[in-house]
Amino acid sequence: MRIKLKFEENEKKFIDRVNELSGENIYSCYQCGCCSSGCPFVFEMDILPNQIIRLVQMGREEELIGSKALFLCASCFTCQSRCPKGINIANVAEAVRHLIEPKGKDYFGPQEIPVELADELPQQALVAVYRKFSK
């Protein structure tokens, strides 16, 4: 597969927005892969946490829209505690989710909640789930 890197206005804007929303500097990542080595959900991920950062650095918004990994991140902050450059990767993932959600698909809908569970489910959890998994 060959991709063309253009760094046009919208790509740059995407990178800047991720930096702004996450409060992290994604350029400081030197791709050591420590986040991916330690991530407890990496076995289910299609791309690794370090690759999420890489794709942001390259401005590959469309590729991130299709990625499952972003939505598997549980924000456990294991990556952040190990990152030698002090990047909070969970924050970056959250920022990217926020930016691509309106363009992506729904990962979760109310019909998927079992009726017997609906009464007991804390509202907070429902709100969080909608925020994270639907556009």
Binding site: C32, C34, G38, N50, R82
Partner: peptide, 18 residues
């Protein structure tokens, strides 16, 4: 890739990396 964790299992050492 960087290693995140090293632990012992039996007389082997398990290394998690990427």
């Amino acid at each position: 890739g960087k290693v995140s964790k090293v632990y012992k299992e039996g007389d082997k050492i398990i290394v998690h990396g990427s």
